[in-house]
């Protein structure tokens, strides 16, 4: 019982820690400067061929952006644009887009 309690506590702390570390405000600003030109600040243009990011799973977004940055996933344009992002940038951006209601 005690054990389970502390596991929950730990999980809670980790979750809190992760969401505290991510700043939606900074993520919004970073997304506006880096991503929104193609993906939109919420949704891409109805006429654009780019995939939507708004409302997507945060962990998925983080993994994908990191893969683009580290060139383990190949896209000439995304490898270039994600290349300059830090782990913190990616965390903020992913949390921002994850928070958008599509």
């Amino acid at each position: 019982m005690k054990m389970r309690h502390s596991v929950f506590m730990l999980a809670g702390l980790l979750a809190a820690g992760s969401s505290q570390a991510a700043s939606l405000y900074v993520g919004h600003a970073k997304a506006a400067a880096v991503c929104s030109q193609c993906h939109g600040i919420r949704m891409p243009s109805a006429d654009a061929p780019f995939p939507p990011l708004g409302g997507r799973d945060v962990e998925y977004l983080k993994t994908a952006i990191k893969q683009y940055r580290d060139k383990t996933r190949v896209s000439e344009i995304m490898n270039a644009i994600a290349g300059s992002l830090t782990d913190k940038d990616i965390n903020d951006i992913a949390h921002y887009y994850g928070s958008v209601k599509p």
Binding site: C38, F50, I77
Partner: peptide, 16 residues
């Protein structure tokens, strides 16, 4: 043309 010009109305034509 591909990436567009940030801070202007110029959109990205990559993929279009």
């Amino acid at each position: 043309v591909m990436a567009g010009s940030f801070d202007t109305l110029m959109p990205p034509f990559y993929g279009k």
